[in-house]
Design a protein around this nucleic acid. Structure first.
Lengths: 231, 231
DNA sequence: CAGTGGTCTAGACCACAAC
DNA sequence: TTGTGGTCTAGACCACTGG
């Protein structure tokens, strides 16, 4: 730390002092001005280092109170939610796609309730299967709001799955996702090779755009699937 | 956008132009200097706005090439990984804890392999149960490396669970976590009320500190549990 | 090689909240 | 009241990389 330090160096050194050094949980750090002086850099540089450590959940910063090391750091795992095709291809396998069912119908009550649609809204129901190297990888059971996206009712999903179409059509949406374990139903038994009742790892996702519900999808993964992250 | 804009305003306006305005997927944005001029602020302000949008995965920025809107934005969900006690209490329920088993022993082969321990390393095995309002919520099956944390072998986990002790002892560790669905085993059947073979939502976590494996834990959740995030 | 983003500076004013 | 972090500026140099 002899010469003027970059914000990365400052960040690394402060992180070192937190994890293995003198600044344990709850410790009060020196002010930004003092740190800037110690590291021989400007206050803005120190500020950026501290701000990033704060965003990582390691610090608690408050005006006038100063910067403290969090007693219980906020641990958050970041899961990237790739498009199936990308996930399969990244693993080195060949991706293929099969449409199982596609139908237009008025929204069933449970769906209308969940997506806050007026009863009877036209929706598109698509069931399809994604393969990796010819073996079933993920079963997709999707409902799309035909009131918000009228074009979808006429679209044909034989060649490519609805997720890729949706990404191209409504790229920047709000999403809520849940992960859960469920017993395999008839569709999963038929297409993923589970016995009925076997544990299935599922992701349920609802998507909004400009306040309107766009789609809800249940993704069922092949046996043995794990969703992994580091942090 | 009349007067000098803050980085939040710049960010919001650029986001608006991306999501609902003229800058669709793949569009090339003006350079930082041009944007600074348009918004009547300094280049540093525009830079911060663009940098944050980039971190959110919406932009692709490269020197000389400029800033583009990502064709397929990188969607990532952030799951906070709370301590069980906090998770239970945040839901308004009363938390309680029961130790089921605690034993010191040499590391079994599968564990030594997984954590890269030398065979025969002393480890502590703890099984315990976390309740919400008296009902079983989460079963914890944990192994702790006694070579890295010798104190743990003498610690008594009757009163409080090992996760709280670990957080206080090794606060800033590296973690890998996986989520999966598995059939209920005997322990889960006995303590979580599942029938054997029922789907269980599990989290498996391994933790390192300064390159040494600290602990591996399997968390099994009560029936119907969902892990949810928005993004 | 030249244009873009990446970073740093020295200084300034402000907003908030602890004292 | 006042000390701390939050933000902004105007300017500068640098590093990478596309053409």
């Amino acid at each position: 730390m002899a010469e003027a330090a970059s914000f990365r160096e400052v960040k690394a050194e402060i992180l070192r002092r937190i994890t293995t050094g003198p600044w344990g949980p709850g410790a009060l750090l020196p002010g930004e001005v003092a740190l800037a002086e110690e590291f021989g850099c400007s206050r803005a540089t120190v500020n950026r280092a501290l701000r990033e450590l704060d965003e990582q959940g390691l610090l608690d910063r408050r005006r006038k109170a100063g910067t403290r090391v969090r007693a219980a750091p906020i641990r958050a795992a970041r899961f990237e939610m790739p498009v199936v095709r990308a996930e399969v291809e990244r693993s080195g396998a060949a991706y293929s796609y099969v449409l199982i069912r596609q139908e237009s119908l008025p929204a069933p009550a449970w769906l209308a309730a969940r997506l806050a649609l007026t009863p009877g809204t036209p929706v598109l129901h698509v069931v399809c299967l994604h393969h990796a190297d010819g073996r079933p990888f993920q079963l997709e059971d999707r409902w799309i709001n035909g009131a918000a996206l009228p074009e979808v009712l006429a679209h044909d999903f034989t060649a490519a799955g609805p997720n890729e179409w949706l990404i191209a059509t409504v790229p920047y949406s709000e999403v809520e996702v849940s992960f859960l374990a469920a017993p395999a139903g008839p569709l999963e038994a038929e297409h993923l090779g589970h016995r009925p009742g076997d544990p299935v790892f599922r992701a349920e996702r609802m998507t909004w755009w400009q306040g309107a519900a766009i789609t809800q999808v249940t993704l069922s993964f092949r046996q043995g699937y794990r969703m992994t992250a580091r942090y």
